[in-house]
Structure formats: C-alpha cells, structure tokens
Computed example of a mutant assay.
Amino acid sequence: MRMNEVAYTDALPIDGYGPGFFRVGGEVHQGNILTGPTGTTDWGSYEDSASLIALAGEVDVLFIGTGAEVAHIPTALRRQLETAGIGVETMNSPAACRTYNVLLSEGRRVALAALAV
C-alpha cells in the first residue's frame, strides 16, 4: 500500500471536536467557529452572515455544520451565499468537519462554519 503524507495549504485542519469546542491546527476554540484560508475565528451563528459573505472569492464551497443534528439553514442566508458565488453544503458538525478535512487535504478552496455540538 502506498502512503502519502497529507499537506494542507492555506488553512488548518480540524484535529478534533467535542462538547462545546473544536480543535483546529492544535489550538482549542470554544463555541462556534469559522475556519478557512483566512484563519479561524469565533462565528456568531446564522445571524453572522457578513463573515461568511466575506469569503467570496476565497472559497468555492462553504460547509456549514448545524450542530449535533442535520438542519436547514435560513433560506435568506443560503440565497446570500449563493448570490456571492459560494457553494453551500449543510450537514451535522461532525460530518462537516470530516468532509472539510478531506477536501482541504485535496487542496480545494473550502471553509467551514460550524455550530458547536
């Protein structure tokens, strides 16, 4: 079996998550996060659409982790993101973290906004 070392580009991978936290690139962040090529910051949930729209031109796909369960995001937020040219994929936060890491390791232009579990 051939093994390849995974190299992440501009963004850091999600190393772990648990009740109320995410570990990104070895650093623990409490609460909701937004991470991608511009770094990792706190995310104010769906009402904080400005920080997501600011990703336009930086990412092709934004994964939105909806917490422990899969849920729909507000329709207005989805429209804003799609109008800005950002593809949106929603899933529960654990699945969003895993999918983000896979695409990040492929060198894709992705970001993750996740609600804490």
Rank of each mutant, 00 (worst) to 15 (best):
D42L: 00
Q80W: 04
W43R: 05
P74D: 06
D60P: 07
H29E: 10
T35A: 03
T99A: 11
W43Y: 07
L62G: 12
L55P: 03
C97W: 08
N32P: 08
E47N: 15
L81K: 08
Q80G: 01
I64H: 08
G57Q: 15
T75Y: 12
E58Y: 09
H72P: 00
V88T: 09
G44S: 14
G87Q: 13
Q80L: 07
T75V: 13
I53E: 14
S93H: 01
T66I: 04
L55H: 06
G31C: 10
H72E: 03
S51E: 11
Y46S: 04
T35K: 00
S51H: 01
S51R: 12
L55F: 13
T75P: 06
G36C: 10
G39K: 05
E69Q: 13
A84K: 07
T75W: 12
A84E: 09
E58N: 11
V28H: 02
I53Q: 11
A50C: 10
G57H: 13
P37Q: 12
I53Y: 02
E27I: 14
P94S: 02
V61R: 12
I73W: 00
I64F: 04
D42T: 00
T75K: 15
G57K: 14
G57P: 13
T35G: 02
S45A: 14
T90E: 02
G39P: 08
E47Q: 14
T75Q: 07
L52A: 04
V61F: 13
C97Y: 09
L81D: 04
T90V: 15
A84R: 06
A71K: 15
G65Y: 09
L77F: 00
D42E: 08
Y100P: 02
H72W: 00
R98S: 12
A84G: 08
S49C: 08
T38W: 02
Y46N: 03
A54Q: 04
Q30C: 08
F63D: 05
W43P: 07
S51N: 13
V59A: 05
T35R: 04
Q30A: 13
W43N: 06
I73Q: 01
A76M: 03
A84H: 09
E58K: 15
L77C: 02
A50W: 09
H29G: 04
A71N: 11
L34T: 05
Q30L: 14
C97D: 08
N32T: 07
G39M: 08
E89P: 03
A71Q: 10
S45Q: 12
V61M: 15
R98Y: 04
T40V: 13
T83D: 12
Q80C: 01
E58G: 06
N92K: 00
T66S: 10
